[in-house]
């Protein structure tokens, strides 16, 4: 799944602009990714200017 480092994130919305399924919701100082909608295409990781987003393998429970 896609993870956001909220300490680094500036909430600029570049990721939301490229997200093909509109699963990223922005607040003034928060960001939420709807993991049910997310297709893990990683476009948000590529556009993030500050490397605040990363892909982590699904955790097996």
């Amino acid at each position: 799944m896609i993870e956001v480092d909220k300490g680094d994130c500036d909430f600029c919305g570049a990721c939301a602009a490229v997200c093909p399924v509109d699963c990223i919701e922005l607040y003034e100082k928060d960001i939420k990714i709807d993991s049910k909608k997310c297709t893990e295409c990683k476009l948000c990781i590529y556009i993030c200017p500050i490397e605040a987003m990363s892909y982590v393998e699904h955790e097996t429970v």
Binding site: G13, A16, A17, V18, D22, L26, L43, Y46, I47, C48
Partner: peptide, 26 residues
Amino acid sequence: DGVESRIGRFAGINTKINLNNIDSGY
């Protein structure tokens, strides 16, 4: 509402922007 506009998407307008057409700015 800026580059990340959601109003258009909510209303059914395709505002998707592909990686060739957006710069990552810092």
